[in-house]
């Protein structure tokens, strides 16, 4: 993968070692809160683009590419994101940390 070009985040995440759990470790507690949320910092501050805009102002999430930083939980102004550590060793496995 040549680095002198834009690399979509999905492709960059693909360079990681993963053991993805089918059961998500992220949950949006109340989608209504997202609809009312103007700033939606999760869309900008999640390093893995786990959060994307849905229709009608909602927020969609995918847990598969989560790098487990916990940013979403901290920046959500409405405390609407439940974020846990993945169970039983699942998730990303950093080799270079």
């Amino acid at each position: 993968m040549s680095m002198e070009r834009k690399i979509p985040i999905e492709e960059r995440l693909n360079s990681n070692a993963w053991d993805v759990d089918e059961r998500p470790h992220i949950r949006i507690k109340d989608p209504d809160q997202c609809r009312k949320c103007d700033s939606k910092p999760c869309l900008y501050l999640c390093p893995a683009r786990c959060y994307t805009p849905g229709s009608n102002g909602t927020v969609l999430f995918s847990h598969e590419g989560c790098v487990e930083c916990g940013t979403c939980r901290v920046v959500c102004p409405n405390d609407a994101i439940e974020w846990n550590y993945p169970r039983s060793g699942y998730g990303v496995q950093f080799r270079f940390g």
């Binding site: 680095m3 990681n16 390093p47």
Partner: peptide, 23 residues
Amino acid sequence: FRLHPFINRLIKDGQLLEYSGHL
């Protein structure tokens, strides 16, 4: 940042091994 001309020439022909995030 990686594609900034001053940085980009330092990583020419590089290969991405890992992408990570942390607080």
